[in-house]
Amino acid sequence: MTEIISALSDVSDRYEALFVDLWGCVHNGVTAYPEAVAALQAYRRKGGIVVLVTNSPKPRAGVAVQMAKFGVPDDAYDTIATSGDSARAAMFTGAVGEKVYFMGEWERDEEFFQPLEVIDNPVEITRVPLAEAEGIVCCGPFDPMADPAVNRPDFLYAKTKGLKLLCANPDIVVDRGEVREWCAGALARLYTEMGGESLYFGKPHPPIYDLARRRLAALGKDIPAASILAIGDGAQTDIRGAMGEDIDSLFITGGLAAEDTQTTHQPNKDALEAYLEKEKVAPNFSIGQLR
């Protein structure tokens, strides 16, 4: 049974590092949550390490720029691990071929295709029409408001050709302010359901946690799993991912699950337990918002 806490400081002294989700926890896709920022700043002042672990398809430099735009100061975190960086590494090692069909918003996602210096002898990636592609790189839908099913004809063709789909963001949906949008994970899920092969690199899958630990190592930190707390609002991404890594977790109930958990300031205990049972996840702690 999850323990409902009133503030991060109730449990943070037990952990040397935090793996913190962004969207729904630190910001809402438009602006930062002041209480969340203050909680992370306080944790760092006491010597804790904050790794922002996000399913954003952006490289970490792009996420840092985005954080500043949203009002998240750089003293609220130490480093960033993104699904985008993990997926880019796979792309430049040829996971889906050299000629790829791109799905997403090019003006937003163009930096995904920037060279990755840590890869030795990277393959040369070329964007091509679907009919010429060796694989698919999916950073998101062309229209985040459209039902993913609009992609069925293209996905049927791609599956028939045996194309793999590289998913740069396993999230199914996000809330941008008050508007819910589809993410790349919804498209990858559909492609898999149709019999295609989707490759995942963000939460809850292992590659992004390996990247987060490498980010810690780059800071000179070797921290065991028992001393890391994962924080997030995604039951099937943040919490399931933490469970798979044997990392304790703090579930932010006022994000994607706010309605299901009847969260105002704090979740309704019975609604929360029913939701966690339905999702088959078991966070160690829960709280309405990160504070």
Rank of each mutant, 00 (worst) to 15 (best):
G162N: 08
N169Y: 01
L165I: 13
A133N: 04
T192P: 02
E178N: 14
D154V: 07
P153F: 04
E132I: 02
C167K: 07
E181F: 03
A168I: 02
Y157V: 04
L165V: 06
D171W: 03
G177M: 09
R176I: 01
D175Q: 09
P144L: 10
R176V: 06
L156A: 14
A188Y: 10
K161I: 11
Y157T: 01
K161A: 15
R189Y: 08
A131V: 12
R152N: 13
A188H: 09
D143M: 07
G140L: 06
M145I: 00
P148C: 04
W182A: 03
A158N: 12
C183H: 05
I172D: 04
P170Y: 05
T160V: 09
L187F: 04
T192V: 08
E134M: 12
L130W: 05
L156Q: 12
C183L: 14
V173N: 06
T192M: 11
N151K: 11
I136P: 02
V137K: 05
K159D: 02
D147W: 00
E132A: 12
P141Q: 11
G162E: 09
P148R: 12
V150C: 05
P153H: 10
F155E: 10
R152E: 15
W182V: 02
A131F: 09
A186Y: 06
L165W: 07
A133M: 06
D154C: 08
C183N: 06
A149R: 14
A158D: 13
L130M: 11
L163R: 14
E178H: 12
T192R: 14
R189H: 12
C183I: 08
V179Y: 03
R189L: 11
V174W: 01
D171A: 06
V150K: 08
V137Q: 05
V150Y: 02
A158M: 15
R189P: 00
T192Q: 15
T192N: 12
P170E: 09
R176E: 03
A188E: 14
V174K: 05
M145V: 00
I172K: 12
V137T: 01
